[in-house]
Design a binder for these strands. Structure first.
Ligand SMILES: [Mn+2]
Ligand SMILES: [Mn+2]
Ligand SMILES: [Zn+2]
Ligand SMILES: [Zn+2]
Lengths: 171, 171
DNA sequence: AACCTATTGAAAATCATTTTCGCTATCCAT
DNA sequence: ATGGATAGCGAAAATGATTTTCAATAGGTT
């Protein structure tokens, strides 16, 4: 059972984890290389989606809905099935990271090498998200997974609370 | 927007966070007290659900489906709506903790005082979960939330990986 | 005991995500 | 370049967990 979504769900193909996390930040055409290396095809839609993340403000997370809307806004027509499939593939390839920030939908952001991983402080009332880094997290995560013989995929430290402005609203 | 589920979703009533985390471990009738204190009513269904958690093995997490099944097995008839409502109320009261372990459904477990909070190492392939404690986590969580002026509700550190036996299966 | 209203169960509704399927476009080999 | 095999696409239907609606009931209070 289990078989968690983004990791093993790109249509019906056998998938294994990819230890190398390519950082294709500005590099042109790198997406095609990364995709093809694993037997995936390069498509316009996938490039457009990745572009969104690369041009998004740091600390900004996107969900499928927002991706769809932003692409519509910029004149691109794309279906939700394609968006979801692309997100899964890119998570699988280590290009994106899937986040469980809260409220029943998944958010995505550009993946970063383990050592620079950051974490999230979320206001459960307005959804505001603050990012922070802390080397201790990464350390504890890899220690734990190692000590249980797990191969590490990623760590998420999420702190839930109520932000200052929501606190005053709720007086 | 946002208004995250379990925290603010017990039918339509104004809810605010409850700083006191009652630990009603073995205490009889304490559930009634805790519920009434906040204007909720004590019901048989809520008691039955809480009982499940109290008699569950340590480190065991339950989702709505499992709760429903276990109650059926022990001869109790209960609807899913009631289960979900009860879970929300009990999270709201600090009796339970909601976990985003993975795979699109929520899990619950008895809440524990902040300082004893534990975290999870999840195998994304088979869903196996290992628990671990680490004081550093809690520390970082409260520091972060404090430094942003957030009032802390809870911290979840979740490490995703592949367990030893799944690693060999995927040779 | 009577009253007010929170809670319940059943059924319908949501809603994010997944699947199906016929068609198209990408990749690889000729 | 050309052609074939098939991964990927869009549209629409399907899923599945969770939420909501609503009439009936039960908990807490006076
Ligand atoms: Mn982030
Ligand atoms: Mn646990
Ligand atoms: Zn807020
Ligand atoms: Zn496993």
């Amino acid at each position: 059972m289990a078989n968690l979504t983004a990791f093993f769900n790109c249509d019906d193909r056998t998938m294994e984890q990819d230890p190398a996390l390519p950082s294709l930040n500005q590099e042109p055409e790198l997406l095609k290389t990364v995709l093809n290396k694993e037997g995936f095809r390069f498509t316009n839609q996938r490039q457009k989606i990745l572009d969104l993340f690369q041009s998004a403000a740091l600390g900004h997370h996107l969900n499928a809905e927002e991706i769809h809307q932003q692409l519509l806004d910029q004149g691109e027509k794309i279906s939700f099935s394609t968006i979801y499939r692309a997100l899964h593939v890119m998570v699988r390839l280590g290009l994106l990271q899937e986040l469980e920030l809260a409220e029943g939908r998944k958010y995505y952001e550009l993946n970063t090498p383990f050592m620079n991983q950051h974490h999230h402080l979320v206001c459960v009332h307005c959804g505001d998200v603050k990012e922070f880094e802390d080397a201790k997290m990464t350390q504890v995560g890899s220690n734990e997974s190692a000590s249980h013989g797990f191969s590490l995929l990623n760590c998420q430290f999420t702190v839930y609370g109520i932000c200052p402005s929501c606190q005053s609203l709720l007086s």
